[in-house]
Write a protein that binds this DNA or RNA. Structure first.
Lengths: 125, 125
DNA sequence: TATACCAGTATACTTTGAGAAACCGGGTAA
DNA sequence: TTACCCGGTTTCTCAAAGTATACTGGTATA
């Protein structure tokens, strides 16, 4: 497993293309985790507390249960959300943004800041 | 045109869903601009100076002229790259990361940092 | 007894992103 | 004169992402 951290400010001039592709991997991970049509909406929904499956679905108009199910699995797999199954009858399921999930905050804020500035930049031309 | 800036740390509790979707737009812009298979590679290529079309294509193994052409147009449209046409015979074309394009740095670094940490987080489980 | 809720699955379909290959007009070097 | 370089564009194809719709088994409600 590769554990090299690069300094993006100051890349080694002899960086091979292979190494460069390695360096792109973490960037892609971040983009994949936040990209797609529904991920951000789900993350924001969970940001405001534990929610049940249908509860999230009602909060996000247009999302199908298939997509919600799939995206929640992705979040869980990445340790960003936690799934709680309550042994009631019928079972109820709750999802929660994990503590680790909250570390996304700085990235999301940075993306939002740049995006906002960009909208102004583009429309001011 | 909407110019509201939200404080992601501290969202108004009465935020309507419409307003929330408005708030997502800049986030999506950032993700769209950096997402996809080739954008980051092209941006990094241009980071090291003006390049000609074929030069970029040679630097990025696997990219087709169709994709490169399309992505460069996107970058240009977003004012991130500048296209210089030289009146030589035959004409030569150069692309350069604009000064504005360099403002992407902080977002990219943030994405890289989170992604790197995430790889460690996931593999350490 | 019939209907609706819950937490999803299953299946089929459409849309989008990307790749492969051919092609273009103008130029240049063998 | 033939073949190749340059900066792309065009057409066709395929896979992935996303949508639509129906369904499940168990329970509560009218």
């Amino acid at each position: 497993m590769d554990t090299t951290d690069y300094d993006l400010e100051n890349l080694p001039p002899d960086l091979s293309y292979e190494d460069f592709l390695q360096m792109l991997l973490p960037l892609r991970d971040s983009l994949d985790i936040l990209g797609g049509k529904w991920k951000l909406q789900i993350i924001f929904s969970l940001k405001f507390g534990r929610k049940r499956f249908k509860e999230i679905q009602r909060e996000i108009p247009g999302i199908t249960s298939k997509m919600l199910s799939k995206e929640l699995k992705d979040l869980e797999m990445n340790d960003l959300a936690t799934r709680y199954v309550h042994n009631t009858a019928p079972i109820t399921v709750e999802y929660e943004l994990s503590e680790y999930g909250k570390t996304l905050k700085s990235v999301v804020i940075e993306l939002y800041k740049w995006g906002s500035a960009h909208r102004k930049h583009i429309t001011s031309k």
